[in-house]
Amino acid sequence: MSGTASAPEPHLPLPVELPLVDEPGGTDVDLKTQMVRFIATGGLSAVVDYGLYTLFLAFGLPVYIAKSIGFVAGTTTAYLINRRWTFKAEPSRARFIAVVVLYAVTFVVQVGLNQLMIHTLPDEWWRTPLAFVIAQGTATVINFVVQRAVIFKIH
């Protein structure tokens, strides 16, 4: 026997996936289920976003930097969970690019609207949480509509 077993070809590791769904992916989840899951995911993502936002404000970072860091962490959390659980969609490079574009738009909307509210609302104890809720709520509506109508229909 002159043949020797060759070592398997090395390959890049797969991206981290959250094991939230056991069944195979598909975009046939009904609207009510998607909305409930999207809101639950959004709640968790908002906790991540707001928690980091207030933490970094406490450390003295400017509002727009603190909000930016919170937004990136919150939207990353949301995308990972929504793709697998809310919309049950398989990985797709085209979908990922579409999500990056959507999140860039909602980033500008959310950080800009938060900044506007911080400078417009009176300097009271409730200003920061109210500005966050207004900005987050606006971005959430935009995200759900675009993800359901466009992004998770991409193959």
Score class of each variant (00 low, 15 high):
K88V: 08
A89W: 05
A89Y: 05
A89F: 03
E90R: 14
E90F: 15
E90G: 14
E90I: 15
P91E: 15
P91C: 13
S92N: 13
S92Y: 12
S92F: 09
R93M: 15
R93V: 13
R93F: 15
R93H: 15
A94T: 11
A94K: 13
A94E: 11
R95E: 15
R95I: 13
R95P: 07
R95D: 10
R95S: 12
F96Y: 15
F96G: 06
F96N: 13
F96P: 04
F96L: 15
I97V: 15
I97G: 05
I97K: 13
I97H: 11
A98R: 07
A98K: 08
A98G: 01
A98Y: 00
A98C: 05
V99K: 04
V99Y: 14
V99Q: 15
V99F: 14
V99P: 00
V100G: 02
V100D: 01
V100E: 00
V100Y: 01
V100N: 01
V101R: 02
V101N: 00
V101C: 00
L102C: 01
L102P: 00
L102S: 03
L102V: 02
Y103T: 04
Y103N: 11
Y103K: 01
Y103I: 03
Y103D: 09
Y103V: 06
A104N: 04
A104Y: 02
A104S: 12
A104Q: 00
V105W: 02
V105K: 00
V105E: 00
T106I: 05
T106D: 02
T106C: 03
F107S: 02
F107I: 02
F107M: 03
F107P: 01
F107A: 02
F107L: 05
V108K: 03
V109G: 05
V109S: 06
V109K: 07
Q110W: 06
Q110R: 10
Q110F: 04
Q110D: 09
Q110I: 04
V111M: 03
V111E: 07
G112R: 12
G112T: 10
L113I: 08
L113Q: 08
L113V: 09
N114K: 05
Q115D: 13
Q115I: 10
L116P: 03
L116G: 05
M117S: 10
M117K: 08
I118M: 11
I118F: 07
I118H: 04
H119D: 09
H119C: 05
H119Y: 10
H119P: 00
T120F: 11
T120W: 13
T120H: 07
L121W: 04
L121Y: 02
L121P: 00
L121D: 03
L121K: 01
P122T: 00
P122A: 03
P122D: 04
D123Q: 12
E124I: 10
E124H: 11
E124T: 14
E124K: 10
E124F: 07
W125M: 08
W125Q: 12
W125T: 08
W125D: 11
W126C: 03
W126M: 06
